[in-house]
């Protein structure tokens, strides 16, 4: 299979300048690859750096050293050194980040939130609306909420809007940060199904899941980050 993520000599530490310059090491010389069609699950106890790694793959946290190559329009681009505007372009076209939290924009309706990415990619507005509604329906969001702004929704409803917007037209690479946390079993199963479908369609997925049942249901491979802050392996 095609490798779509390649991480080399990745090192990360946080330096807290206003707390005596204390340095918190997270990884040293981390190295791995992920291919299209895989669902790589990051593993290790709380605080081991799973979410930090996921954020680095998205370019949200900056590496202290090393490389993160991401497949973008057929080429491997090192997001550790690329220009900010290239990274924005990569995020628009090649990589998506799904958290359990929706960043609510005032006054934008649920359907508009879900179809926004499709419209930005030039999908016909009517088709985008239809697909958005189908996805919201699948995630059991009552249709009376579709035309309302999610700022007034419950946490679980906002979370499902966020999942709908990420899976309705998924990026080639999807990073999942606890997308099923606090969902009820029925909706959790929908998300598991969406992950399977997306993976089988040839997308690359990397994720962190608190729930062991979900981990076992979705993982095609596991990367254990325990001790990755120590010597090179």
């Amino acid at each position: 299979m095609t490798v779509t993520i390649r991480v080399e000599q990745l090192t990360k530490q946080f330096v807290l300048h206003n707390q005596g310059g204390v340095a918190l090491p997270v990884f040293r010389d981390l190295k791995f690859e992920v291919a299209a069609g895989e669902m790589l699950v990051l593993h290790g106890r709380s605080g081991v750096g799973k979410s930090s790694l996921l954020r680095m793959l998205f370019g949200n946290y900056k590496p202290s050293a090393g490389h993160i190559f991401i497949q973008h329009l057929g080429e491997m681009v090192d997001i550790a050194s690329t220009a900010p505007r290239t990274l924005l372009e990569i995020r628009r076209k090649s990589i998506g980040f799904v958290s359990q939290f929706l960043r609510v924009i005032p006054r934008v309706t649920a359907v508009d939130v879900v179809r926004d990415r499709m419209l930005a990619r030039g999908v016909d507005a009517r088709l985008a609306t239809e697909r958005a509604q189908v996805m919201l329906e699948r995630l059991n969001l009552p249709s009376r909420l579709w035309k309302l702004a999610p700022s007034t929704f419950s946490g679980g409803e906002q979370q499902r809007v966020n999942i709908a917007r990420s899976f309705v037209d998924p990026a080639p690479i999807l990073l999942l940060d606890e997308p099923t946390a606090s969902l009820d079993p029925a909706n959790r199963d929908v998300v598991i199904q969406l992950i399977h479908e997306t993976r089988q369609a040839g997308h690359t997925l990397v994720g962190v899941f608190h729930d062991q049942g979900v981990r076992e249901a979705v993982a095609t491979r596991t990367l254990d980050l325990t001790h990755s802050d120590r010597a090179a392996r």
Binding site: F14, V15, L16, H17, N18, R55, G59, N60, Y61, K62, P84, L87, L88
Partner: peptide
């Protein structure tokens, strides 16, 4: 300087760390 979310979520300069905290 950098992407907005990078600068706000993983600030490196002492002043930016102070500002975001």
């Amino acid at each position: 300087h950098g992407l907005t979310d990078q600068v706000l979520d993983d600030p490196h300069h002492p002043y930016t760390q102070l500002l975001t905290s």
